[in-house]
Write a protein that binds this DNA or RNA. Structure first.
Lengths: 192, 192
DNA sequence: GTCTATACACCGATAGAC
DNA sequence: GTCTATCGGTGTATAGAC
């Protein structure tokens, strides 16, 4: 059961995480420091350790939060059985690249290994694996069943997202390539 | 003119850079610390500042060195006029992914933003731009002239390389997808 | 229980003696 | 050119006030 004290703790944890995202947006993901983070929520640095056992644990919670947000964006995707593989792939790719493009620190944390020495915990990583499994199921509904095709498709989609975020953050230079990319990929699959 | 003392300095600089690559391989790129690096070449930390003005300058020299190595691997590529676009694209993509795959810290330094707060200097970045220009010229010889096609191709190639290095370092899971990727890309170009 | 104060070990970088 | 000593920063552990 959740007591009042548990809810208070959870609220403070969320407050800390929100401040961490703000700091990441302003100073970069690796620019989060414990003392400024603490003062952003009106604490001294050591008090943060009442809510997170380490700085890495804060990154871990942010990683998990990002994956839950990605999972939410997946539930809005159309059913390939309704709209066909082409439209479904276009919609999912667009959703993914837009997700990456709208919050650069979140993209960096989730899809690049950019925090020295940090790796997601097993629990947090499980949420990422769950998302990958959801994507696999989605691709299977689109008729992409073999591993080599899935490997190629994930490489293409992550490549587009990474180029977009890195070289045109917030823009659409690679977003506008999605339709022809999907057509190219599907045409090759029909051909073989 | 290069005096004996200049050559001695250059030799020491190379010694430091070699030790830095070794440390990066062992501790991760961001795990390079000045004191261990200094002791690896038999110095105290402050002496390093006689050869590099800052730690970032060491990353900068490593970045430039990596780009020169990449440029060297480009000169061995076949001429598209000799072997045709398909073979030329396959060879260049294979060379690039193998380059990324054979030295993970070098890949991380050159193609990911993984050192917090560090960006290559203008001089070092120029070498990366030169390499990109070489790649553009090469793609043009392969008949890939418009920007959208180049954007798509660079996204695909960097996506393959990143998946290979991240998820199967030293292996060939994405390397073996090159041939069909090139065929897919070229078929779509002929079709439109 | 939650906070503050203090301290520790490490970091990159600098000053100045030799 | 290399050293020692040191500075201000980091993440983090701990003691203890309230």
């Amino acid at each position: 059961m959740t007591t009042r004290i548990d809810r208070r703790r959870a609220a403070t944890r969320n407050e800390i995480l929100d401040a961490a995202w703000d700091l990441a947006a302003a100073e970069g993901l690796a620019g989060i420091a414990m003392r400024p983070l603490a003062s952003a929520v009106g604490m001294q640095a050591p008090s943060l350790y009442e809510y997170f056992p380490s700085k890495d644990a804060i990154y871990d919670a942010m990683f998990a939060e990002g994956n839950r947000e990605l999972a939410e964006s997946y539930v809005a995707l159309p059913d390939p059985a309704d709209v066909g593989a082409r439209e479904a792939l276009i919609a999912s790719t667009r959703a993914f690249i837009e997700f990456c493009n709208e919050n650069e620190p979140r993209f960096t944390l989730m899809f690049q290994r950019s925090i020295p020495g940090w790796r997601p915990s097993d629990d947090a990583y499980q949420e990422a694996v769950d998302n990958l499994r959801r994507l696999d199921a989605f691709l299977e509904c689109c008729g992409i069943t073999d591993m080599r095709s899935r490997d190629l498709w994930t490489a293409i989609v992550t490549g587009l997202a990474s180029q977009q975020v890195t070289n045109d953050p917030g823009g659409d230079r690679w977003l506008t390539l999605i339709d022809e990319t999907v057509d190219m990929f599907l045409a090759a699959r029909v051909a073989t």
